[in-house]
Every structure is written in C-alpha cells, then in structure tokens.
C-alpha cells in the first residue's frame, strides 16, 4: 500500500503493464511507470522516485473486524459482472506458470507463499509453512530483533520489533484462544496487535514492521539478496 502523493501532490494511478508477473502502473501527471512491488518509478520523468509505504495489514476479515468493529469495507464494483476474483482465486493462481528462471538448489518452489521483511538494509523471507508451524517466530533481520506472529486462522501474519525499552524480549504463545503471547522476561501478556494487555508492561506497544505476503519468485525478484528463514 502506497501513499498516493508525489512532491505533496495527490496522484492517480492506472494499471499500465506487467513486468515479470508484477504489475506496472502509471501516474496521470507524468505517465511514469511505477513497479507495484517496490513502489519505485522505473521509467519516465519520475524514474528513481519512490512512493512512501503506508503500513498495512493482510489479515482475515474476522481478525480485522474484531479490532475495528467501526471500520469501513470496500464495496464490490457492480459496474461489471465479474469485477472481483472468485473465492478460490488463490488455488487458481497457484496453477499459473512462472516466467522468472528457476535456480538450481532453490530451497523453495516459485509459488510457495512467503512473508517478506526488509529491515536494516537486509531482506528475509519466512515461508508461510514455517510460520504456521512455529509461530511466534523470533528472529533478527538486519540486526533488528523481530517477532512474527501467525493469527488463529493461520493466514493472518504480523511482524513487530521485539525490543521494549532497549531490551529484546522472547515470546511464547499461551495455549488456548484467543491468541495471546507471553514474554519470558516479565510474564506480561501480549495481543496479536502487539500490545501488552496485562502484566508489568501493560500498555506498551511493539514497533510495527511491514511484512509482505508474496510468492517466493516475486519476493526473490525484487529482493535478490534475500535470506530465507529455515524451520528449526
């Protein structure tokens, strides 16, 4: 999700092409082409400019609604008969071919779903499967201690920095629902939103880290130096 502003002026974007299965869009003002995955202008008068990232979540509707009962939801576009994907679009998309070259010894398949994190100049991919089996995952990216949590539905993922008041914490999932984490250092209880809800750290918030759910081939294309988190 990008801030639709360049040089303080609101921009409108149009779908304009495709680059190795990640789409390109152009702005109305200059016609420059922007890469969806990176938010960077790759051709045109604005080449080299980058859109600001707007922190966002990719989570289940149930998880979102629980936290934002008063939020608003985009209505389907009823100007055409099929202006949204079918409910099984992910299974359909997974069958589509991949055009970026395969690499020998690649530990992941091109259409494996990963959660990508960029921090401190480093990029790291967390296979969805590893997150589902091992959540909460404590790790470090670019020297920054991070925490990745898979929600109860197994598909909603959030990432945070796990340093509070200068001290990195380690987290454990408390058995049972709803999802609650406990930190080993103070025994405080934390929610999926990264907020301490009970204990001595109550009221503290973990710093948000943007995570991008992506196909492995796409994440690798735009983060060629990425490392991969391995199931331990």
């Amino acid at each position: 999700m990008w801030r639709a502003e360049v040089d303080g002026r609101r921009q409108r974007f149009h779908l304009t092409g495709i680059n190795n299965q990640n789409f390109l869009m152009h702005d109305e003002e200059t016609g420059s082409w922007w890469q969806q995955a990176s938010g960077e202008a790759v051709f045109g008068p604005r080449k080299g400019w980058r859109l600001d990232l707007v922190p966002y979540d990719e989570i289940s509707f149930a998880a979102w609604k629980r936290e934002h009962p008063n939020g608003r939801v985009l209505r389907p576009d009823d100007s055409g008969p099929a202006h949204q994907f079918s409910r099984d679009w992910e299974a359909e998309t997974a069958k589509e071919p991949v055009v970026t070259p395969a690499r020998t010894g690649d530990p992941l398949r091109p259409r494996d779903v990963v959660v990508g994190v960029r921090l401190g100049g480093a990029a790291r991919a967390y296979p969805m499967e590893a997150l589902q089996r091992q959540s909460p995952v404590q790790d470090a990216v670019g020297g920054v201690p991070v925490l990745l949590i898979a929600g109860e539905d197994g598909r909603s993922v959030r990432a945070f920095e796990r340093t509070v008041d200068g001290r990195p914490l380690s987290f454990f999932a408390r058995p049972g629902a709803p999802l609650r984490l406990v930190d080993a250092e103070t025994g405080s209880e934390w929610s999926f939103a990264g907020e301490a809800t009970a204990g001595t750290l109550k009221g503290k918030k973990l710093a948000w880290v943007q995570a991008l759910k992506d196909y492995w081939f796409d994440w690798r294309t735009y983060n060629p130096a990425t490392s991969i988190y391995a199931l331990r």
């Binding site: 999700m1 707007v54 922190p55 966002y56 979540d57 990719e58 989570i59 289940s60 509707f61 149930a62 979102w64 609604k65 936290e67 934002h68 008063n70 939020g71 608003r72 939801v73 985009l74 389907p76 576009d77 202006h83 949204q84 994907f85 079918s86 409910r87 679009w89 539905d153 598909r155 909603s156």
Partner: peptide
C-alpha cells in the same frame, strides 16, 4: 465478505478501512 476472506487493512489517524483481497 466471509470471515475467512483476506483483506488489506489500513488505519490512519483513527480511521480504519478494509479492502477485500478478492476485489
């Protein structure tokens, strides 16, 4: 939107919006 449907969600200055991924 079904409970299990994925959404892209944003909250800015107290306003929250969700965009179903299918759309």
């Amino acid at each position: 939107v079904a409970d299990g449907d994925m959404v892209l969600a944003v909250e800015r200055n107290g306003e929250a919006a969700a965009y179903p991924v299918r759309q």
